[in-house]
Design a binder for these strands. Structure first.
Length: 270
DNA sequence: ATCTTTACCTGACTGC
DNA sequence: TGCAGTCAGGTAAAGA
């Protein structure tokens, strides 16, 4: 599932080929993916506008065509890549943006949860999203945790509190920080909260350097796999030995989410 | 504010 | 080989 590091990898991979390109056609076989817009509306809105910037905000991919934006969310199975073919390179392509270099920006999504949206402002993102974890200081993390009694795992997944972390890297950060996923946020001491913030940044930075985790559907824009999944300590390692202490990794459900942790490294709060 | 539930989707996997 | 059932989880919306 694409989270912050996977989305960042996609943005970095696409940028060199996409900056300066114009969209000359828009195709879809699943109009719902356009989130209320329509192909001909997108075509006319983007007509003649070269792409000025491509960047990430949380898990959203933002294409800036000069005050007009195409915002892509990959959700669970979305992929974004360049193809010589309008229908892309796999059978799950549902949106295709024809470019002025005769290539296509293909949006593939087997689950059809992802969206390719047209908008004239990114304010809606800022209204609903919390800060970027890679841009937060240790004290910013500690302050963020004050006043909430929710389980830390649930809190880390709340995009309005902190934006970009998903199920994988929440589990990875909590194991490495030695904090049980059910720990109430306001029961984490100041110094431990600061250290958790540092761990979150380290986990995300490392995953970006590994170019994301290719479990299930995620691929880099060039079609190759990321390496991050080879370095998991927690996620998907149920019944396997903890890489720190050898204790068997357990799986529980927290906030409807599969949660992996080490019962020795992450002591349950009383 | 927080929690819970439901909906959106379909490929991959398990068991018979 | 097939068929039913289950699981995966990011986000939005509704109701408590």
């Amino acid at each position: 599932m694409p989270e912050l590091p996977e989305v960042e990898t996609v943005v970095r991979g696409l940028a060199p080929d996409l900056i300066g390109r114009k969209v000359v056609s828009v195709w879809t076989d699943w109009p719902r993916a356009l989130d209320g817009s329509e192909p001909h509306l997108m075509e006319s809105a983007l007509d003649g506008r070269p792409l000025q910037r491509i960047f990430r905000r949380a898990k959203y991919i933002c294409l800036d065509f000069g005050g007009i934006y195409v915002v892509v969310h990959l959700r669970m199975t979305g992929r974004l890549y360049l193809s010589p073919n309008r229908s892309g390179d796999d059978r799950w392509v549902h949106v295709s943006l024809g470019l002025d270099d005769d290539r296509y920006l293909a949006f593939s999504d087997s689950r059809k949860f992802g969206r390719v949206s047209l908008c004239d402002s990114l304010d809606f993102l800022e209204r609903k999203l919390g800060p970027e974890p890679l841009e937060m200081s240790d004290d910013a993390f500690s302050n963020l945790f004050r006043g909430s009694t929710r389980a830390i795992k649930t809190f880390l997944l709340d995009q309005s509190k902190i934006a970009g972390i998903g199920n994988i890297y929440a589990d990875e950060a909590l194991l490495r920080a030695g904090i049980h996923p059910l720990t109430p946020v306001d029961r984490i001491p100041h110094n431990r909260a600061r250290r958790l913030g540092q761990t979150i940044r380290e986990v995300l930075d490392a995953a970006i350097n590994y170019e994301g985790a290719s479990i299930s559907w995620y691929r880099k824009p060039d079609g190759s796999q990321g390496e991050s999944q080879k370095h998991f300590w927690a996620y998907g390692r149920t019944h396997q030995p903890c890489k720190v202490c050898g204790t068997t990794i357990e799986r529980i459900v927290v906030g409807q989410r599969s949660t992996h942790f080490c019962p020795k490294c992450q002591k349950k709060p009383r």
